[in-house]
Amino acid sequence: VAKLKRFYEFSLRLENALRSLLEALTSPPYAPMQHLEREQALAKQFAEILHFTLSFDELKMTNPAIQNDFSYYRRTISRNRLNNQQLDAENEVNNEMANRMSLFYAEATPMLKTLSNATTKFVSENKTLPIEDTTDCLSTMACVCRVMLETPEYRCRFTNTDTMLFCMRVMVGVIILYDHVHPVGAFAKTSKIDMKGCIKVLKEQPSNSVEGLLNALRYTTRHLNDDSTSKQIRALLQ
């Protein structure tokens, strides 16, 4: 329970960090591509956050015991309160904190949900900043990752599979954030993300390493089932 609390609190820190990074990577007077070239360390940090987020959520999705164990803890708290008893653990995770944590872990991909909400909130709160500045930053990062994954001269520089997995997670992460904040999403024809190319790159990898990422695109995006999504893209994700 204490470990689950640490991850929940870390998600709140990630939320604040992501909004600060978005502000730094989208603010005038530079265009998104200029920002990514000028602030490469910040772009790398953004990528690291997405890499961790997708890694965490993949593990969470394959461990249903997390929610079962936490539900048992909450029932134990309630039962002890009726008997005027208190667990030592309650000093660290009281009923109010347990309620917030429960909502967090009830999500299929809790960290990604946190970042999606943070990105959406960033866009809605910064009304003077054109939404294209944010979406262009995300689509540019997706394009860079796709090119690195599909171009032989880049791929030959990857010394291990971890680097490829890093690029794939970052690519999927920015696609999902883009889909949450763009009015028509990442799958429409007008999208600045080459979704066919991105999905094709993922499908070329061993299925055991990308199934979680494909599931993230299937189940955590907002616009996949919209009328604007082509049948070809839907078929690729089936």
Rank of each mutant, 00 (worst) to 15 (best):
A2N: 11
L4I: 05
R6K: 12
R6E: 15
R13S: 05
E15N: 02
L22F: 14
S27Y: 03
P29H: 09
A31G: 07
M33T: 07
Q34H: 05
E37G: 08
Q40E: 09
I49F: 07
H51K: 11
L54A: 02
S55E: 10
S55I: 01
F56T: 01
M61I: 04
M61T: 13
Q67K: 14
Q67D: 09
D69L: 13
F70H: 00
Y72G: 00
Y73S: 00
R81Q: 11
N84R: 14
L87H: 07
A89I: 04
V93D: 00
N95P: 09
E96R: 15
R100Y: 04
F104M: 01
F104R: 11
F104P: 09
Y105M: 07
A106T: 14
L112T: 05
T114I: 10
T114D: 01
L115I: 01
A118G: 06
T119L: 11
T128C: 05
T128V: 05
L129P: 07
E132I: 03
E132C: 02
D133Q: 13
D133R: 15
T134L: 10
C145S: 15
R146L: 12
L149E: 01
C156K: 15
T159R: 03
M164Q: 11
M164R: 09
F166Y: 08
F166K: 02
R169S: 03
M171G: 01
M171L: 14
G173M: 09
V174Y: 06
P183C: 04
F187W: 14
T190M: 09
K192H: 03
M195I: 11
C198D: 06
S207L: 12
V210R: 15
E211L: 06
L214R: 15
L217A: 07
T220H: 08
T220G: 03
T221V: 06
T221H: 12
H223M: 06
Q232T: 14
R234C: 03
R234T: 02
A235R: 13
Q238N: 09
